[in-house]
């Protein structure tokens, strides 16, 4: 029964994270929300008796994906600044 409550809560939080990732104005917050979605998904895998998948998702879905997104955002931001300086 307690597992059921935890699962419902996790599902609600994950849907909220997906909503934030789609609709928040700042891209940085959206990327962080995507990473948090991956982290909650890894907890869900652990509840579903899949520890291997949970480890992979925790390392890749919330760690490396977010870092790659931030590298790209950083590059794009500096490019936009250069353009403003020229114009």
């Amino acid at each position: 029964m307690s597992f059921l409550i935890i699962t419902v809560l996790l599902g609600a939080v994950m849907l909220a994270m997906a909503f934030i990732a789609i609709y928040h104005k700042k891209l940085i917050v959206a990327v962080i929300a995507t990473g948090a979605l991956g982290l909650f998904a890894s907890i869900l895998y652990l509840l579903l008796a899949a520890p291997d998948v949970a480890m992979t998702e925790a390392a890749i879905g919330s760690g490396l994906t977010t870092i790659i997104f931030f590298y790209v955002l950083n590059r794009i931001r500096t490019d936009a600044k250069e353009e403003e300086n020229e114009a």
């Binding site: 997906a18 990732a21 789609i22 891209l27 959206a30 990327v31 995507t34 979605l37 991956g38 998904a41 869900l44 895998y45 579903l48 008796a49 899949a50 998948v53 998702e57 879905g61 994906t65 997104f69 790209v72 955002l73 794009i76």
Partner: peptide, 24 residues
């Protein structure tokens, strides 16, 4: 475009959850 890629990531996560819960 970045938000579209975020959409792909979300799609991936949902697909994985469906597959793992079918396996339970």
């Amino acid at each position: 475009i970045i938000r579209i890629i975020i959409g792909f990531v979300i799609f991936d996560t949902g697909l994985h959850i469906v597959m793992v819960s079918i396996a339970y």
